[in-house]
Amino acid sequence: MAKGRVTIVVEHCKACGLCVEFCPSHVLALSSAFNSKGYHPPHVVHPENCSGCDLCGMYCPDFAIYATKVAPTEGGGK
């Protein structure tokens, strides 16, 4: 099970792609959908790989994404 969970605030995203590029476990990809400003925000493609390291949150220049650690019981245990 995943150790972390990513939350994306799609309306703040400007689609620079840093989170997609620098995610160490390749959880994200840019989606084909648009937000209201016309950017393609990222979406989660491999939720099971997320470690909750929050590197995406640290790189994001728009404060539009962050990851949180999931407690083992909450995430189903490992």
Partner: peptide, 19 residues
């Protein structure tokens, strides 16, 4: 957070430094 999204361009590094 009420002032977001900010004025910096897509990919501008200033937001990352604030982070």
């Amino acid at each position: 957070t009420d002032r977001m999204p900010h004025i910096w361009c897509p990919g501008c590094g200033i937001g990352t430094t604030v982070n």
